[in-house]
Amino acid sequence: MRSVDTLRGVATGTLIFLIIGAVGVVVLALALLGTELFDALGGDVDGPVSVEVVAGFTGAFGFGGAIVNELLGAGSPTLIAAAAGGGAVAAIPTAWLASRLSRAARNMRTDPTPTRDHLVGALGLVVTPVPADGYGEVRVRVAGQPVKLNARADRPIPVGTQIFVVQTLSETSVHVETY
């Protein structure tokens, strides 16, 4: 019985603003998770404003409007309009911030993906002895990550010896020398 009384105590305007805010948060979560919301419509629907900006604006407008509506005790259309204005005051900087953050994330510079050419010159250790006529295993660091590779050498190299990569034979095997 108490939950029904609590629901009656929430103004209709506040409930509408909370629903608008919740819709904005759901759309923002979907946009940030990488789903293409409008692919089902077919065609390219991107415009000058991103989905993240619209969702941020909607969420801040809804929750800001709900807060102002409760503070004003809005029961009349004039006070609800004032609450909507308060929601817009919260929504505009939020949309601007969402625009800046989403643009920064899209344009973020990243390191290139390491290729087999990045292995040449890498330092490492022998983890399985390298015989003169076969393959052993070495562990090297490429772009800060440890990588275990098959290794050949001109002469036998025992476990624990420091090596450097002279040549890449394939994506997973290298020719090494002692360091």
Rank of each mutant, 00 (worst) to 15 (best):
E36P: 01
L37E: 00
L37F: 01
F38N: 00
D39R: 13
D39Q: 13
D39L: 07
A40Y: 06
A40V: 15
A40F: 14
A40D: 03
L41V: 10
G42K: 06
G42Y: 12
G43Q: 07
G43V: 07
G43R: 10
G43W: 08
D44W: 06
D44I: 11
V45R: 11
V45S: 14
D46Q: 11
P48F: 15
V51Y: 00
V51W: 00
E52Q: 14
V53Q: 08
V54H: 09
V54T: 08
V54L: 15
A55E: 00
G56Y: 08
F57N: 04
F57S: 02
F57G: 09
G59A: 15
G59M: 08
A60N: 08
F61L: 15
F61C: 02
F61M: 10
F63L: 05
F63C: 03
G64E: 01
G64M: 04
G64L: 04
G65T: 08
G65E: 01
G65A: 04
A66S: 04
N69Q: 13
L71Q: 09
L72V: 11
G73I: 03
G73Q: 07
G73T: 06
G73H: 07
A74G: 12
A74F: 11
G75Q: 11
G75A: 14
G75W: 05
S76A: 15
P77T: 12
